[in-house]
Amino acid sequence: MAWFKKTRKPIETTEKVSRVPEGLWVKCPSCGRALYHKDLAATLQVCPHCAHHFRMSATERLSMLLDDGRWTEHDAGLRSLDPLGFTDTKPYRDRLAASIEKTGQQDAVIVASGRLEGIPVVVAAMEYSFIGGSMGVVVGEKITRGVERALAERAPLIIVSCSGGARMMEGALSLMQMAKISAALGRLDRAGVPYLSILTDPTTGGVTASFAMLGDLNIAEPKALIGFAGPRVIEQTIRQKLPDGFQRSEFLLEKGFIDMIVDRRELKATLGRVLRLFGHRPDRARPAAPEAATGDVDAPAGA
């Protein structure tokens, strides 16, 4: 007779606390070891012991991918006008203002030009800490402009997805961004300009069901959650617990929906190699600083 029953572990939440918190030491959620924050920065937010990939901010991502950590940001000033006048437990306007304050960015994506191993590229990197990386009109517009820029310059496009999907607070306008970006990607596709989609943890909902799945290559980071419906929604539908590893990168590779899983520490080299294999060469003719090439009002970033 068991007087003390083992308490059952509750269903694991999918929302891992994987943003690196403030403080000098970080506990790896996967292997449990304490990691010094500077070491973690040196390994691109990857645990040196177990290769757990911590979530990365958009600026860290751009620094990591682009030569000398330099890029020119485009359309940084686009800001949502709260087109629905949406209010749930608090007004969406307030949520936006708080996220702008917290991240120093106007919305959940940074679009930039730079060079990757010398190859001029356009990169869009999503920012998860801005309302879950959700896609509203600003994300849609910035990425679409990024696709159009890649098309005009015939520069390869890289989009790093990290998003819970369409942003509810902008309603059907958010939904339509899926069609808007996909239409632009259609033109890029027919023009023969490469588009590499990088799927990171998490990539779900309307982002997966539009641009994230449309890469000439879909490249995932290890163990990233990638899917259309969220795991909790599926569990409610089928009324049972999902198998381990369901909707993870390795599952999608097995099912044939992504081309490769690449460790973040190898990502830049892999992208460079793929672009060279697709016939793109480092552009040595133009000066390294990309801002000189455009009359764009956007200021260059980095130094």
Binding site: T59, E60, L62, S63, M64, D68, G69, R70, W71, T72, E73, D75, A76, G77, L78, R79, S80, L81, P83, G104, Q106, I110, A112, G136, V137, V138, G140, E141, T144, E170, L173, M176, Q177, A179, K180, A183, A184, D298, A299, P300, A301, G302, A303
Partner: peptide, 25 residues
């Protein structure tokens, strides 16, 4: 048609941001 869903002035605006992008790695 789809390009104009979520237009400037209706759905978003452009604000001036100091120095464009911010830090680099």
């Amino acid at each position: 048609k789809f390009r104009s869903m979520g237009r400037e002035g209706q759905a978003f605006t452009t604000v001036t941001v100091a120095g464009g992008g911010d830090q680099a790695g």
